[in-house]
Write a protein that binds this DNA or RNA. Structure first.
Lengths: 212, 212
DNA sequence: TAGATTGTTAATCGATTAACAATC
DNA sequence: TAGATTGTTAATCGATTAACAATC
């Protein structure tokens, strides 16, 4: 299914959550699934789920719902998980190494091919079959391998510099773990992963529960 | 400032981002700051910033803006960063260990006091001065230390079990890194950290840039 | 057929942005 | 004083939810 109306950012964020749940069902050999039951399992409104799914698949049938494998396939192809996406990571500190070791990215067909750092002590080392290169090699490798996704796990004061280098290297999508606003040209997208925002929600809730 | 009208979830998520920026300014010895300049630096709408700040501080002055240290203090106290918050982490795999080593939590006055796992090979080891205990010790330690924040970094099929144990141990706020929907009583809050949602946004953008 | 489910249209809700008066 | 900034009220925008017709 191609090119219905553009879907909202909120829907886009929910699709991977549905997908995860659907894949778990698949392991349990479930064959069919309805929006209503997905909504129930994930604690969401059923109309919302139905609308979200309708935006990426038109194979839903009244009374039956969706055939599980068809729905999974439609969501995956919408999200672009049907092509492997190569990525590089800059910053091989604790967080960078953890991401490098994380197996779960295969679920999203994301493959981190290499890491880069400016610390001579770790340049040249291998982590889980992946080599840590000097930051100087970033541009060359990205261009040669046509890498379009960059992950930033350096300290905040280095993040903009790294970001600029990524843009120069042809990267179009940046996953930023540094707590800072990055300036990029408009053809590049930045997704900020903000630990602070999540913690704020927990902290506020706790404050209300404990002191009120 | 206490108890104006309740602020929105969106505002709550943005406050830590402002705070981060304000602290960076502090290092540069800036003394005053306006909503307009924050908005400009962070690429946001100035009315939005003004409203967000007004919801936690009433010390803004026309023409001058805010005194930096006052604004920082108001945001921090609103977010509850003025008390140290102790947390435990369950699941000492790659991600769990990375979080355990992460220094940045001190910015949020969050202190991870211990990790728990069910793998005998790592139980008893120390990571950055923090011990990995058997999961069997979780309840006792949480009760004794009155720990209210739990971080889940176990595989998805173990997450609900761990969650139940946390709830039983008196934990009220759960930061969940497992890609699964957790069922909790209504007094407990769950904040899901969803890698898939972030990646979906990047992946979709890339698909549009590259294939259209 | 009746009931469960789909997809769509309309209503509601909440968040963002615009307009503007107040003020240091 | 004039201009920059604040805070507030109103308008707009977008997302969620409700209502309902279509259908296997």
């Amino acid at each position: 299914m191609e090119n219905k109306k553009p879907i909202s950012l909120q829907t886009l964020k929910r699709l991977p959550i549905y997908l995860q749940y659907l894949k778990a069902l698949q392991r349990d050999s479930v064959k069919h699934i309805s929006s209503t039951s997905i909504a129930l399992a994930l604690g969401q409104n059923d109309v919302q789920v139905r609308k979200d799914l309708a935006s990426v698949s038109d194979r839903g049938k009244p009374k039956i719902g969706y055939v599980l494998i068809e729905l999974i396939s439609d969501i995956e192809s919408y999200l672009g998980y049907d092509n492997v996406q190569n990525a590089v990571i800059v910053g091989a500190g604790n967080l960078g190494r953890a991401l490098l070791c994380y197996h779960g990215f295969s679920n999203y067909n994301l493959d981190i091919v290499a890491a880069f750092d400016n610390n001579d002590d770790i340049i040249g080392k291998m982590i889980k079959n992946k080599q840590i290169f000097s930051i100087n090699k970033l541009k060359n490798l990205c261009e040669r391998m046509k890498i379009k996704i960059g992950i930033i796990t350096v300290p905040d004061y280095e993040a903009q510099k790294v970001c600029d280098l990524m843009v120069e290297s042809g990267i179009l999508a940046i996953w930023n773990f540094a707590p800072i606003n990055l300036n990029v040209p408009k053809e590049v997208i930045v997704q900020n992963e903000n630990i602070g925002s999540s913690l704020a929600i927990l902290s506020k809730h706790l404050k209300e529960k404990l002191y009120k």
